[in-house]
Amino acid sequence: LTDEELVTMSVRELNQHLRGLSKEEIIQLKQRRRTLKNRGY
């Protein structure tokens, strides 16, 4: 997933992508998404 996709994707879509990932990967992705959102994309 690109940063842009992460930010513009709805939470529902995101959760579908996260299905099948490990807990660590999910946590990393969610942190990255929060960081991007805070940057004001």
Rank of each mutant, 00 (worst) to 15 (best):
Asn38Trp: 06
Ser22Tyr: 02
Val11Asp: 13
Thr35Gly: 07
Leu1Ala: 02
Gln28Met: 13
Gln16Pro: 03
Arg39Cys: 14
Leu1Asp: 01
Arg33Ala: 05
Met9Tyr: 02
Val7Pro: 01
Arg32Val: 02
Asp3Leu: 03
Ser22Asn: 08
Leu6Glu: 01
Ile27Thr: 11
Lys37Arg: 11
Glu13Met: 06
Ser22Gln: 05
Arg32Gly: 00
Glu5Lys: 07
Met9Asn: 01
Gln16Tyr: 11
Val7His: 04
Arg34Trp: 10
Thr35Gln: 14
Glu4Met: 13
Gln31Lys: 11
Leu29Cys: 15
Thr8Trp: 06
Gln16Gly: 06
Arg12Met: 10
Val11Ile: 14
Glu24Ala: 13
Arg19Lys: 14
Leu29Gly: 00
Gln28Gly: 10
Gln16Leu: 14
Lys23Phe: 09
Gly20Val: 04
Arg33Cys: 14
Leu21Gln: 04
Gly20Thr: 08
Leu1Val: 06
Val11Cys: 15
Leu6Val: 03
Glu25Gln: 12
Glu24Thr: 10
Leu36Gly: 02
Arg34Tyr: 06
Arg12His: 11
Gln16Trp: 10
Lys30Trp: 15
Leu14Phe: 15
Thr8Ile: 07
Thr2Val: 01
Ser22His: 05
Leu21Met: 10
Met9Asp: 01
Gln28Ala: 14
Ile27Tyr: 11
Glu25Trp: 04
Glu25Val: 11
Val7Leu: 13
Ile26Asp: 01
His17Asn: 05
Lys23Met: 10
Arg39Met: 15
Gly20Ala: 05
Ser10Asp: 05
Gly20Trp: 08
Val11Ser: 09
Glu5Gln: 15
Asp3Asn: 04
Leu1Gly: 00
Leu21Thr: 02
Gly40Trp: 13
Met9Gly: 01
Arg12Phe: 11
Glu5Arg: 08
Ser22Arg: 07
Leu29Arg: 01
Asn15Gly: 07
Asn15Trp: 14
Thr8Gln: 12
Ile27Met: 12
Leu21Asp: 00
Arg33Lys: 05
Val7Glu: 06
Leu36Ile: 04
Gln28Asp: 09
Ile27Pro: 01
Leu1Cys: 07
Glu4Lys: 11
Arg33Trp: 15
Leu6His: 00
Asp3Glu: 03
Thr8Arg: 15
Leu21Cys: 04
Lys37Gln: 11
Gly20Ser: 06
Thr2Leu: 04
Gln31Ala: 13
Gly20Lys: 08
Val7Gly: 05
Lys30Asp: 03
Ile26Lys: 13
Glu24Leu: 10
Arg39Glu: 13
Thr2Arg: 04
Leu14Met: 05
Glu5Gly: 03
Lys37Ala: 05
Glu25Asn: 05
Glu5Trp: 05
Ser10Phe: 01
Leu36Arg: 01
Ser22Leu: 05
Leu18Asp: 01
Gln31Glu: 14
Glu4Asn: 08
Glu5Met: 14
Gln31Asp: 10
Gln16Val: 10
Arg32Ser: 01
Ser10Gln: 03
Thr35Arg: 11
Thr35Ile: 14
Thr35Leu: 15
Arg34Asp: 10
Leu14Glu: 00
Leu18His: 01
Thr8Gly: 11
Asp3Cys: 12
Val7Arg: 08
Gln31Met: 10
Gln28Arg: 14
Asp3Gln: 02
Thr2Pro: 03
Arg34Pro: 01
Ile26Trp: 05
Glu4Tyr: 15
Leu29Lys: 02
Asn15Asp: 07
Arg12Ser: 10
Arg34Ser: 08
His17Gly: 02
Leu6Asn: 00
Arg34Gln: 12
Arg32Pro: 00
Arg34Thr: 08
Thr2His: 03
Ser10Lys: 04
Arg19Asn: 08
His17Glu: 03
Arg39Ile: 14
Arg19Thr: 07
Glu4Asp: 09
Arg34Glu: 13
Glu25Arg: 05
Lys23Asp: 07
Arg19Tyr: 07
Gly20Tyr: 08
Glu4Gly: 06
Lys30Gln: 08
Glu24Asn: 09
Leu18Val: 06
Ile26Ser: 08
Gln16Asp: 10
Leu29Ser: 02
Leu6Ser: 00
Val7Asp: 03
Thr2Trp: 02
Arg39Phe: 09
Leu14Ile: 05
Ile26Arg: 15
Ile26Met: 06
Leu18Gln: 02
Arg39Asp: 09
Val11Met: 12
Leu36Asp: 01
Gly40Ala: 11
Ser10Leu: 03
Gly40Gln: 14
Thr2Cys: 04
Asp3Arg: 00
Asn38Lys: 14
Arg12Glu: 12
Val11Pro: 08
Arg19Ala: 11
Leu1Pro: 05
Arg19Ile: 12
Leu1Asn: 00
Tyr41Thr: 12
Asn15Thr: 09
Arg19Glu: 09
Arg12Thr: 10
Asn15Tyr: 14
Arg19His: 08
Lys37Asp: 03
Met9Ser: 02
Ile26Gln: 15
His17Ser: 05
Glu24Tyr: 09
Lys23Cys: 09
Tyr41Glu: 13
Leu18Phe: 14
Gln31Arg: 11
Leu29Thr: 06
Arg32Tyr: 04
Arg33Gln: 07
Glu13Cys: 15
Leu36Tyr: 02
Arg12Asn: 09
Ile26Pro: 00
Lys37Pro: 01
Asn15Cys: 14
Leu14Asn: 00
Val7Tyr: 07
Leu1Lys: 02
Gln31Asn: 10
Glu13Ser: 05
Leu14Val: 03
Ser10Met: 02
Arg39Thr: 12
Gln28Tyr: 14
Asn38Thr: 07
Asn38Gly: 09
Leu36Val: 03
Lys37Trp: 05
Gln28Lys: 13
Thr2Ser: 11
Arg12Tyr: 10
Arg33Asn: 02
Glu25Met: 11
Ser22Ile: 03
Arg33Tyr: 15
Leu36Phe: 01
His17Ala: 13
Thr8Phe: 08
Ser22Trp: 01
Thr8Met: 09
Arg32Asp: 01
Met9Val: 03
Lys23Ala: 09
Gln16Cys: 13
Arg34Asn: 09
Gln16Asn: 12
Ser10Gly: 06
Leu6Tyr: 00
Ile26Thr: 06
Gln28Phe: 13
Leu6Pro: 00
Gly40Asp: 12
Thr8Val: 08
Gly20Phe: 08
Leu29Tyr: 06
Arg12Pro: 07
Arg12Lys: 13
Glu25Pro: 00
His17Trp: 12
Arg12Cys: 15
Ser10Asn: 06
Glu13Phe: 02
Arg32Cys: 03
Arg34Met: 06
Arg12Leu: 09
His17Tyr: 15
Gly40Met: 11
Gly20Arg: 08
Gln28His: 12
Asn38Ile: 07
Ile27Lys: 13
Lys37Ser: 04
Gln28Ile: 13
Lys23His: 11
Glu24Val: 09
Leu1Ser: 01
Arg19Met: 11
Leu29Gln: 03
Ile26Tyr: 05
Val11Asn: 11
Val11Glu: 13
Glu13Gly: 03
Asp3Lys: 01
Lys30Arg: 12
Ile27Ser: 09
Leu18Arg: 00
Arg33His: 14
Glu13Asp: 08
Arg32Trp: 03
Leu21Val: 04
Ile26Val: 11
Tyr41His: 12
Leu21Ser: 04
Glu5Cys: 12
Glu5His: 06
Leu1Phe: 08
Glu25Phe: 06
Asp3Trp: 04
Arg19Trp: 06
Lys23Val: 09
Leu36Ser: 02
Lys23Ile: 11
Tyr41Gln: 14
Thr2Ala: 04
Arg12Ile: 07
His17Val: 10
Leu21Lys: 12
Gln16Ser: 09
Glu25Leu: 13
Leu18Gly: 02
Glu25Thr: 09
Arg19Phe: 07
Lys30Cys: 12
Leu18Cys: 08
Ile27Gly: 07
Thr2Gln: 03
Gln16Thr: 09
Val11Arg: 15
Arg39Gly: 13
Thr8Glu: 08
Ile27Arg: 12
Gly20Leu: 07
Tyr41Lys: 10
Ile27Leu: 11
Asp3Ala: 02
Glu24Pro: 08
Ile27Phe: 12
Leu21Glu: 01
Val11Gly: 07
Val7Trp: 05
Leu6Gln: 00
Glu24Ile: 11
Glu5Leu: 08
Asn38Cys: 15
Lys30Gly: 03
Gly40Val: 11
Thr35Trp: 15
Asn38Tyr: 08
Glu24Lys: 12
Glu13Thr: 05
Gln16Phe: 13
Leu36Pro: 01
Glu13Lys: 07
Lys37Ile: 15
Leu1Glu: 00
Thr2Ile: 02
Glu5Ile: 07
Lys30Val: 14
Gly40Ser: 07
Gly40Pro: 08
His17Cys: 07
Arg12Trp: 12
Thr35His: 13
Gln31Tyr: 07
Thr2Phe: 02
Leu6Lys: 00
Leu6Ala: 00
Arg33Glu: 03
Arg34Cys: 06
Lys23Tyr: 09
Glu4His: 15
Lys23Thr: 10
Glu5Thr: 05
Glu4Leu: 14
Tyr41Asp: 13
Asn15Val: 12
His17Ile: 13
Tyr41Trp: 11
Gly20Met: 06
Ile27Trp: 11
Arg19Leu: 10
Asn38Ser: 08
Asn15Gln: 12
Arg33Phe: 15
Gln28Trp: 12
Arg34Val: 07
Thr2Glu: 03
Leu14Tyr: 05
Leu1Ile: 09
Thr8Asn: 14
Leu18Tyr: 09
Met9Leu: 07
Val7Gln: 06
